[in-house]
Nucleic acid binder design. Structure first.
Lengths: 321, 321
DNA sequence: TTGAAAGCGATACCAG
DNA sequence: CTGGTATCGCTTTCAA
């Protein structure tokens, strides 16, 4: 075991060993309040169309409180025929800080629009199989990061009631809205920058781990200049750039005199290294903007899918180039 | 707008403008296959107890395929009376790399145990209110990061059918399993280390308020360093430590000669700075270990809650102390 | 103002 | 082997 688990002497279980009564339903509330289930529903949902007397309301509320009643979301949305769940499959690799921040903002923005955002960790499912697993949850919208979803997957999702499917990656998918991250442009920008600084033999550092190729390959394409030797390097991201820079320094290679290094993502920490790291800053969309896109798509599912470039990759020059 | 959205000329919508037929149900499959809904269920779930003739099976499968039928998870779990969803409320702040990695592992491990892990982004809900929102989903288990869940919240969750509630934080909550991260122990370890290295005037850097101040504060500390008269600092985490160290160096304060600095979390990047940062390494539980804890709790919900120390905080000495 | 009842979709029991 | 049918919890007409 890679970690230590030490049992802590625990006080006896504070929960009384009462009979494990089943979870209370609206029928239980109705019984306790002496009304019908319909009345319970009216009161708890504060239906405007029906007026319930104040004493009855109070009785219902007290009964619900006493039983600790919590409505059953599945039953409700089954009856309603729709939900307001936005499904977001987790990316296949642990997310970086940029993605984490983005997801966080996005969740907040959608919550404010009264959606429920759910990140779904589906391990090992691929393509259409994954799409079916997502479709079982009947989300009103699905936001898929990375590749792996084809037109058939999109069709499955739409046929199962998803009113908006948004892909988040390098190229659009038929039938789905697309948020395009122009990674090739990132590499291009980095290469241009290095070239402009007089570098002619430019190398590229990309991750080897499986799962990341999808992101690294485009950048490679963008930066694949005529790599002959090494007087300039574009790294997949700032972490790799920092690793490389550290390795170079340990070898006595001077940065940027002997080798210019530029990364990507503009990590805060990259500004602390000496020399401070040049980088390509990628601005992800604000959560609010994307949330509005999703909301628009949900309200108007018939519209032709939009494709948007999330293109704000700017070179930030510091001391390493 | 902080980012640029450029509409890309899109090919006309490839989806034929057919009538938006509603989502197919098992009844539709049954109709198309010329059998009853019961038979459809038997075939698609491959129920062992009932034998269906091979021709019928084929007809059902073909019908389901043709319609693009996907079962309705909500209806299924409503009928079944339980689900295998493990709910994991998203932490209130964007997660760090440690947490991201941990969640990823955990999701994978639970998936392998046939659970569905769902990260739930509930913005703005607090305490019992949040607990109720989670309870509406009727998860079989809930893993709550950080504080904010009290005994009443735990009770709500359990009464609504959660067979395991696990809190993940600094202190246990009545009725819930607890995974304790002994942050006090981390600080103790760091302090001991600094003391053993001969430091006597030891300061601590902790985040004050979320926002930009969190980054400016260490710099401020760096600027007024000489007034403080410290000779050793323990920072809340490696990021703060790196910020502080950078600020100190800019002020001409030598590390570790004039000031020893130690951080926490053992970020990979902390090894790249010069001088390389000493740190307190915190080993989070492997996803597998925690998944097994959850599984055990779900299978045996009556057991008294376990409290586990996730205590593998070890000082890693590098060059900054 | 309140209650009875019809479903939403899927499953499992019991007849045929 | 296959088909009715009751049921899960909830909402919402329609009647009273």
């Amino acid at each position: 075991m890679p970690y230590v688990m030490v049992q802590i002497p625990n006080t006896p279980a504070p929960t009384s060993p009462s009979a494990p009564r089943s979870v209370p339903t609206s029928a239980d509330v109705a019984r306790l309040a002496g009304v019908s289930r319909a009345t319970v529903s009216y009161v708890l949902n504060d239906t405007g169309a029906v007026r319930i007397s104040e004493p009855t309301r109070r009785r219902v509320h007290r009964a619900a409180e006493e039983l600790g009643y919590v409505p059953h979301a599945a039953a409700r949305s089954l009856r309603a025929g729709h939900s307001r769940m936005v499904l977001m499959p987790a990316p296949p690799v642990p997310a970086g800080p940029l993605h984490s921040q983005f997801v966080h903002d996005f969740q907040g923005a959608l919550s404010r629009l009264d959606y429920t955002v759910v990140q779904y960790g589906n391990c090992g499912l691929h393509g259409d199989e994954a799409a079916r697993a997502w479709a079982e949850l009947r989300p009103v919208a699905v936001l898929v990061p990375g590749p792996g979803l084809g037109p058939r997957g999109v069709a499955v999702l739409k046929r199962s009631g998803a009113r908006a499917v948004v892909t988040f990656g390098t190229e659009p998918v038929d039938g789905a809205h697309a948020l395009l991250t122009d990674h090739a442009g990132v590499g291009r920008g980095a290469a241009r920058h290095l070239y402009a600084r007089g570098r002619r033999r430019i190398g590229v550092v990309v991750p080897e781990e499986p799962g990341l190729e999808t992101f690294s390959a485009p950048r490679l394409d963008g930066a694949r200049w005529r790599d002959l030797g090494l007087d300039g390097v574009f790294a997949y991201n700032d972490e790799y750039a920092m690793l490389l820079m550290s390795a170079l320094q340990d070898e006595g290679v001077r940065v940027p005199e002997d080798a210019a290094v530029i990364g990507a993502d503009d990590l805060m920490l990259a500004r602390l290294l000496r020399p401070r790291l040049s980088t390509v800053r990628i601005t992800l969309p604000s959560g609010r903007g994307l949330a509005e896109l999703v909301d628009r798509a949900v309200r108007n599912p018939g519209a032709t899918p939009e494709s948007h470039e999330l293109f704000d990759a700017t070179v930030v020059q510091r001391d390493s180039t």
